[in-house]
Amino acid sequence: MATPHDLFDTLLASARAFCGSKEPPAPSVGQYLRTEIARRVPALGRGEEDAQRLQLAALATCFKLECCISGTHSMDLVALEPFGEYVSLPGLDCTFPGGYSGLPDHMLSALPEGSVLLNKAVRTIWWQGSFREEGDEARDFPIRVECEDGDTFLADHVIVTVPLGFLKERHQDFFQPPLPKRKAEAIRRLGFGTNNKIFLEFEQPFWEPQQQLLEVVWEDESPLEEPSANLEANWFKKLTGFVVLQPHGHVLCGFIAGEESEYMETLSDAEVLSTMTRVLRTLTGNPRLPAPRSVLRSRWHSASYTRGSYSYVAVGSSGDDIDVLAQPLPEDPKDPRPLQLLFPGEATHRTFYSTTHGALLSGWREAERLNQLFKAPGPAPQL
């Protein structure tokens, strides 16, 4: 008999197969999965109810993990037809030895000193204008970037790398004139959700040395039933489990997505630590399990320049919206001042959205647009 994980993986693979379908069987991945689960986990005979209940409970955990991967509150929000466009990059996850800052630090090392300014929050990007430096009437620029501290910068081209969550909340006043309707609609339709990590540090590990994962399954849950809407009482139940962080050996990393994750951000460290201690004591059956000595968690939704973690293709949107979001402005390719605004970012990569490599590749894509614009015409080919 297939395990719940095997069944869920099989159903996910079949969900991806509807890519390009004119009439997918359901609007969302969640609805499709639930219909298939109800069909494949039929009512069992007397004496087998417990086995069915546990199978459904494990499948509920699979749903939560997929919410973390997709960066969504519910798989009911993720569109079924374009789901298969996403491509998983082969190979293992890459962990930077000195932390994530190693990636931008490496990039910055190639730039002249002083060329990157920090703590310069931007209030408004004025484009399609005619702006001049004071005292220089000979040259005008189409763009003026106005910072919250009052400083301004004039430019021919601006690469806008803010997350989709920020654009959803601020694009109407962040760009002047406002973005064209087509791009504004793509921003509205695409999905953007929250996936947070909770790190717990222990004096001593309470798990086996070879253990890599502690999965959380709540026996009273089922993907075929509506989860509790009481965030205060049940937010921790959205937790999928904990990964043992190597080589530390005494740190667990938990994952939690959606509205429960956003609620977690409003709690104090002490409240999160206390709840995680209670969850782990329940999970292990050990009421005297020592509490973690420290907790650290991300707060992607609360951060005003992100407002969440990463994008997904929501019901009502498609990969075409990703392409529209990626298109530079002005829209007219014959505009005498092209490529004023360029839009890289994970939400602008049609097959690698939600990933760091998608963000990186989209940045190279926009840099290449400018390279092509500035490229001097080469010598005429020899006939």
Rank of each mutant, 00 (worst) to 15 (best):
T3L: 05
F8N: 07
C19T: 14
C19I: 08
P24N: 04
A26M: 07
A26I: 03
S28V: 08
Q31P: 02
T35W: 04
I37K: 09
R40P: 01
Q52T: 12
L56V: 08
A58M: 06
H73N: 15
M75S: 00
V78C: 03
Y86P: 06
L89C: 12
H106D: 09
E113K: 10
V122P: 02
V122K: 11
F131G: 01
E133G: 02
C147L: 15
T152W: 14
T152L: 07
D156T: 14
K168M: 05
P180K: 02
A184D: 00
Q204A: 13
Q204M: 04
P223T: 09
A229H: 15
A229W: 10
L231V: 06
E232N: 11
E232A: 13
V244Q: 00
C253I: 12
I256G: 06
E265K: 07
A270M: 03
T277I: 01
T284W: 02
A291N: 03
L296A: 14
R297K: 12
R297N: 04
S302A: 15
T306G: 08
R307L: 12
D321Y: 01
I322E: 00
A326H: 08
L329W: 02
E331F: 08
L341S: 03
T348D: 00
R350N: 00
T356S: 15
L360E: 10
A367S: 07
Q372C: 05
A376F: 04
